[in-house]
Simulated scan of single mutants.
Amino acid sequence: MAQLIKIYEENPNPKEIQKVVKTLKNGGLIIYPSDTVYALGCDITNKSALERIAQIKGVKLEKANFSFICEDLSNLSDYVKQIDTSTFKLLKRALPGPYTFILPSNNNLPSAFKKKKEVGIRVPDHSVARAIVRALGNPIVSTSIKDEDEVIEYTTDPELIYEKWGNLVDIVIDGGYGGNIASTVIDLTGDEPVLVREGKGDLEI
């Protein structure tokens, strides 16, 4: 069963963050709070952890559309092709925030995603998520945890998340009640930005 660790957004406890990072580096899976909904994540560089997430979501890893959670825009050039000034300005204006931007990927993607032509990038406006990525030293791959309940699409109570997911992951972070509106997804791979999914956030694009 997973550990349930309390880490709050105001001043996340560095010792607890290190515990989470150690688990990620060892190939563990975490459920963590973000500025939108609670999400499932693992170290981007750990193939077996990526396979576990794909299995939980019931998708083939190479076909999975997972987001890369970055601390800031400095990670962009690691995975994304050169972007023009107007695209960069849009990202700078929107991030950190509740958005996922689909961008054209370069050749540096982890081996599991080599065939992908595009990648979803997130910089959440949430200190716990960003503290984890900062301490880890590279992005985490992430996907929202959906609820089977038709009415409540996303579970917001960390205790209930723990009950439901505790035997599938290694750590559930209790950061208080989460949101229940997913990120807004914007595709920036074409000439003009395209709204793919309306979620939290109302960026003028």
Rank of each mutant, 00 (worst) to 15 (best):
L109Y: 05
P33M: 10
T45F: 01
K15D: 13
D43V: 15
N46Q: 07
L40D: 02
L95H: 02
Y32L: 07
N46A: 09
I205E: 04
L76Q: 02
V119T: 08
K164N: 10
T184S: 06
G179R: 15
K6T: 08
G176H: 09
V133R: 04
P104E: 15
K25H: 15
E9F: 12
V21Q: 05
E198P: 07
D125F: 08
I31V: 14
G97T: 08
I145M: 04
F88N: 11
L188M: 13
K114D: 03
L90E: 02
F66I: 11
L136T: 01
A64M: 08
S144G: 05
I102L: 09
V141H: 00
I56T: 02
N108W: 09
R122Y: 02
I121L: 05
L203N: 13
S48M: 12
N138T: 07
K116T: 06
G178V: 03
P104C: 11
N138I: 10
P158D: 01
E148S: 13
Y154K: 06
T36E: 14
K164H: 11
K6Q: 07
I121G: 02
G190K: 13
A182D: 09
L160D: 15
Q82Y: 10
K60R: 15
A64V: 08
F68I: 11
L195V: 10
L61S: 03
A94H: 04
K6V: 07
S67T: 15
N106C: 06
E192D: 13
K200T: 06
I186V: 12
P14A: 13
Y162T: 03
Y99T: 01
G176K: 13
A2D: 02
I30R: 15
D125P: 05
N75Y: 14
E163T: 12
M1K: 09
A64D: 03
N167H: 14
Q55F: 14
G179E: 06
I31W: 05
A182L: 06
E10W: 13
I69P: 00
I173T: 04
N180K: 13
E150Y: 11
N11E: 12
G27T: 10
Y38P: 00
G199D: 05
D78E: 13
G28Q: 00
I140H: 01
I132H: 05
S142K: 06
K19F: 07
V196K: 14
V141F: 00
T143I: 12
N180F: 05
S34N: 07
Y162M: 04
L103T: 05
N26M: 05
E163L: 14
P33Q: 08
Y38C: 00
N180Q: 10
E62G: 11
L73R: 01
V59T: 06
